[in-house]
Amino acid sequence: MLKPFGREIWTADGPDVVAMLGFHYPTRTAVIRLSDGDLFIWSPVALTNDLRAAVDALGTVRYLIAPNSLHHVFIADWKRAYPDARTCAAPGLQEKRKDIVFDAVLDSARIADWSEEIEHVLMPNGITSEVVFFHRESGTVIFTDLIQQFPARWFSGWRAIVAKWDLMLGPEPSVPRKFRMAFTNRRAARASLERILEWPAEKVLMAHGTPVTENGQAFIKRAFGWLMA
């Protein structure tokens, strides 16, 4: 259920979710245990009894993170299960999910509660502004949708053609073409990327794709080489 990914960080894969036009996307969450035992839940997936038991065995759920305006489907279920947890959302999600009262909007400002252990940077994008995180203890950078990769036969028919055009089926995770085109403010995007590249990344995790377990900073440079050019 929970798989260790590094020091004080675990992942769990949830069920596939149907998005627009019938595209199926896998789901993944990351659980980070802070030094005080509190848990930081990134992009919550469907909360099953087994997952809840595994999470509770690690510590106290304190933060529920919606890292962009697309990854929010299950956060209300987690809030009901953990009413004392703080919900934190990327810009734009509060307007979309008026049924949830978010405790904080994640811009590029530091969050005192976890800033010594987890840093974050906002990457504005026309599709969805995404908050990218760095967990110092494990050396892990966490993207959500800005970097993706699917198995070659994940999609079929015309969807496979679209996915190939969108650079979602490459040999390693990359930035989909639609997101590249949606970085209309390239200067702001480069500034965010420069901050990300300052992190001593060893690993890279994303919601949809094969995690990178070594040479993380070099991988990020390759993935965003088109933006740096």
Rank of each mutant, 00 (worst) to 15 (best):
M1E: 05
L2P: 05
P4K: 06
R7D: 06
W10Y: 10
A12R: 00
D13Q: 12
A19N: 05
F23V: 08
H24A: 14
P26M: 13
R28A: 00
A30F: 06
V31F: 00
D36L: 04
G37H: 09
L39D: 06
W42H: 13
W42F: 10
P44Y: 03
D50Q: 10
L51I: 07
R52A: 13
A54Y: 03
A54Q: 08
V55R: 03
Y63E: 02
P67V: 05
N68C: 01
N68Q: 02
S69W: 04
S69N: 09
L70G: 02
H72W: 10
I75G: 05
A81C: 11
P83M: 04
T87C: 05
A90Q: 00
A90K: 00
E95I: 08
K96H: 14
D99F: 09
I100Q: 07
I100C: 05
A104R: 12
V105S: 07
D107E: 15
I111E: 13
W114S: 10
H120R: 06
L122R: 02
L122Q: 02
M123R: 01
M123P: 00
I127W: 02
S129L: 03
F133D: 01
T140H: 02
T144M: 01
T144S: 15
I147W: 02
F150Q: 04
P151T: 03
P151F: 02
P151L: 04
R153E: 11
L167S: 11
M168A: 11
R180T: 07
F183M: 11
T184D: 13
A188T: 10
A191K: 15
E198S: 15
W199C: 08
W199D: 09
A201Q: 01
K203E: 07
A207I: 12
G209R: 10
N215C: 09
G216M: 07
I220A: 14
K221Q: 12
K221F: 05
R222V: 07
A223C: 13
A223F: 12
